[in-house]
């Protein structure tokens, strides 16, 4: 009898992998064939020995070693994320520290283009005997620096009571009196001719 065709089914039957109908057919054949009976017996015995040989438990130290290696690797990968988070936090702190100054710069209105002569001229109080450079008249009065003129290529030629001023020098300080009514604006225009000086006095609403 050629039993080669039974080998695969017998091997499957040894591991209970055949459906009942096929299993019954194999059992019938094995009952009549000594060689196939030995094959089935040998397969079952080997499977049992194999399971037994591989049933030894693995030492817990091996599991712990794997876990430690994996966690170490993952922790190493997560480190850059922390570094990025730290950098981001530092950047935020820096931004918060710098922001008020930056806002002051941005919010401050750009100085209106003022005629050079106006910027160089003392306020109208100069004509009433006050310090031509706008020195405070008394203690406790606030001082602000006037915005620098947008363009000034003209050298002041010795105004009344003051030394000549040149471009780039600090603009004069001006006393601010918030509660006082607006004073008339006086503009002194200096021409190329040193003998010709034009005064323009505006008595509008502060303009």
């Amino acid at each position: 009898m050629n039993c080669g065709e039974w080998e695969e089914r017998i091997a499957l039957h040894a591991g209970c992998d055949l459906p009942p109908m096929e299993a019954a057919a194999v059992d019938r054949h094995v009952a009549e064939c000594a060689a196939c009976q030995a094959l089935l017996s040998g397969l079952r015995q080997t499977a049992g020995l194999l399971r037994e040989a591989h049933s030894e438990p693995v030492e817990s130290a091996h599991y712990a070693a794997v876990r430690a290696r994996v966690l170490s690797e993952l922790a190493g990968r997560q480190r850059p994320r922390w570094a990025y988070a730290l950098l981001a936090a530092a950047a935020m702190l820096l931004l918060v520290a710098v922001w008020p100054k930056a806002r002051r710069v941005v919010v401050t209105p750009r100085p209106q283009p003022v005629p050079v002569a106006q910027a160089l001229m003392p306020p109208v109080s100069a004509f009433s005997g006050a310090d031509p450079l706008g020195a405070p008249s008394g203690p406790g009065t606030p001082w602000v620096r006037r915005p620098r003129p947008a363009a000034s290529g003209v050298t002041r030629k010795g105004g009344p009571g003051g030394p000549p001023r040149t471009r780039g020098s600090a603009p004069p300080l001006q006393q601010v009196e918030p509660s006082s009514p607006p004073e008339p604006l006086v503009v002194k225009l200096i021409t190329d001719d040193p003998d010709v000086v034009i005064y323009w006095i505006s008595e509008g609403k502060g303009e």
């Binding site: 499957l12 040998g42 020995l49």
Partner: peptide
């Protein structure tokens, strides 16, 4: 898979014997 399993079982048995 069934084919692989059956072949493997026979090979292991033959090897051990």
């Amino acid at each position: 898979v069934r084919s692989q399993i059956s072949q493997a079982r026979v090979k292991v048995k033959d090897f051990v014997e």
